[in-house]
Write a protein that binds this DNA or RNA. Structure first.
Lengths: 210, 210
DNA sequence: CGAGTTGTTGGATCGCGTCCAACAATACGC
DNA sequence: GCGTATTGTTGGACGCGATCCAACAACTCG
């Protein structure tokens, strides 16, 4: 069986680290597929675009699409999902006594460096893409996930279940409201941080008085 | 074309009002289908139960299922969805100056008389039914909807967009956290009102100081 | 009894998501 | 250079949710 783990690290002249694993190289990338998808969403709408269409424009087969994204909806949300996973790991490891500041810090870094990706594009062009209901559904999932992560951290620090969940929901709502506002005011121009700070401030009163 | 609107109201001896419309009577009901569905979910799991299975056990055809529910997921959420629609209508009509108390009152009546239906059963037996991810998804949709309704009412009264959405998210989280807690502590025993009040209290600090 | 209305049924269709076996392209040890 | 392990790609099949539609059935009313 696998003798070495079969991973070679190739260091280029500039020192950039490119992980070069054995086996056939990928024929495409998430970015390529996401671009193709967004083009098609604008041309034909979200529902009018099949996964086969997207794969076809990106030059891969329909089967391969699922090597890059778990579902059609994940095209738009993959970026945020990664950050939520990172937030989860961060808050789960956290040993601080002050859960409130840990949550605030975690959510702030979640927003830091958030790039205008396919999600921002989709929010702005939601009507043109026929995405209204789709975004409602999928935004709800992320709100739930963020809320659960935050609530778990708060509950671990001794806060009751219901207040923890309410606070989690408030902070999750702050994140998504901020993303939406940021996308609408031109994701490229202003950083997400400012509007996110406004949301976090609005949600903070749900935390127990210090 | 339709001459009278074709609706006859039949008043029984006890005064109960049964709307008797012209045309073929329904062969089943939401309740019958929901019961059949819950039985099957417990026996085979949610994913292992097809809509054909449900319709079959309830004694109707698969096609007819969609005359009663819009989707498989709606079997569990139809009850709450009706109340959300009522909340929406109530808050949209509301002319009160005090948006905060209007929201609190609206959410309280949303919880009043909430009966332990298929949703409560599903929450309690989520693991047995293999519903964990499904409930996460669908609960998120309702959280989003409640949050949007509340936020719209708050925003109409002059509160900024982001604080409105954060407060909406907090109150929506309160409702769903309350329903979940209520289901887990035996939906039949205690009324939803008490635990819901706890949630609303936890969410209230997101409202502007009076 | 006939007309209008409402509901049921089966079948067709479409797309998402899963699964799988066959095949292709790479790295590595020899 | 050659086998081998590994990783990806591809096409096809499948099941299921959901939509649509024409034909039919059951009821009310005049």
């Amino acid at each position: 069986m696998h003798r070495t783990g079969a991973v070679a690290v190739v260091r280029s002249t500039l020192g950039a680290v490119t992980e070069q694993r054995s086996g056939r190289p990928r024929a495409s990338s998430r970015e390529t597929l996401a671009e193709a998808a967004c083009e098609l969403f604008l041309e034909q709408g979200y529902d009018g675009t099949s996964i086969a269409d997207i794969a076809n424009r990106a030059g891969v087969s329909r089967s391969s699409f699922f090597n890059y994204f778990e579902s059609k909806a994940d095209i738009l949300w993959a970026g945020l999902d990664e950050r939520i996973a990172a937030l989860d790991a961060r808050l789960a490891d956290d040993q601080t006594t002050d859960a409130a500041t840990a949550v605030l810090a975690g959510l702030t870094v979640l927003g830091d460096g958030f790039a205008p990706d396919s999600l921002a594009l989709a929010i702005v062009n939601a009507d043109a893409m026929g995405l209204e209901t789709e975004l409602e559904r999928e935004a709800g999932v992320r709100r739930t996930r963020i809320g659960a992560v935050v609530a778990a951290r708060l509950h671990r620090s001794g806060i009751d279940v219901i207040p923890s969940r309410v606070a989690g929901a408030a902070f999750a709502g702050a994140v998504l409201a901020a993303i939406e506002a940021w996308a609408h005011e031109g994701a490229g121009r202003a950083p997400l941080a400012r509007v996110l700070a406004e949301g976090l401030a609005a949600a903070s009163p749900t935390l127990p008085a210090p």
